[in-house]
Amino acid sequence: MLTKRIIPCLDIKNGRTVKGVNFIDLRDAGDPVELAKQYANQGADELVFLDISATLEGRGTTLDMVLRVAEQVNIPFTVGGGISSVEHVDALLQCGADKVSINSSAVKRPELVNELSNKFGSQCVVVAIDAKQINGQWKVHLAGGSIPTEIDLFEWAKEVETRGAGEILFTSMDHDGTKNGFANEALSKLSETLNIPIIASGGAGSVQHFIDTFEEGKSDAALAASVFHFGEIPVPKLKEALKKNNISVRL
């Protein structure tokens, strides 16, 4: 049986991890490779690196980081953040990234999804969607959730699936950072309308939240950052708990 995936997400700036990371046994908590190895050893199923560098130079260091991660880590990983061209994706994949995630650039130019899936295959194209509810309607937001659009979440998700996305990474801006649980109603609707895997993101605060997003939210994978980085929910404990609740996980 295909298992549900647990995905730690690392924010990267100028080739270094940002946000506090509170890991013991790490020589350098700012080194993405060290952290990635640690997560792989703990049983994380995949990793996501989100590049939040503001400068071109900063982004350049990401390629080098991707190469070092691919060299040393034996689980799959996705790279996202500021990706807007076929050439950029080509460079990331050449360095050993397994998948890329695109977000605002796909909204600005939806053909990018077709171009990437035609050239590299849909298996490596993750479309990340940030959305929040406005008057009861889920609306897509750009630039890390700061710019609202008139685009409906479900219509947009369906469109990118048709254009060749292999996976959707849905972040609810209403839930992100709250630690009150994932947006399970919207997630289960996405999962029922689409026939590609859905990654839940935003809101993880407890083990129960993960159980809920796999059961009620029908999510295929769950992504979180701080609960993992600060050791609040260690990956091995989370997976044990999921298994006890009859959720299929890799142990």
Partner: peptide, 13 residues
């Protein structure tokens, strides 16, 4: 077939 999500993506036995 579309009774499952396609692609299969992740860990299976």
């Amino acid at each position: 077939s579309n009774v499952v999500k396609v692609p299969q993506m992740g860990w299976n036995v």
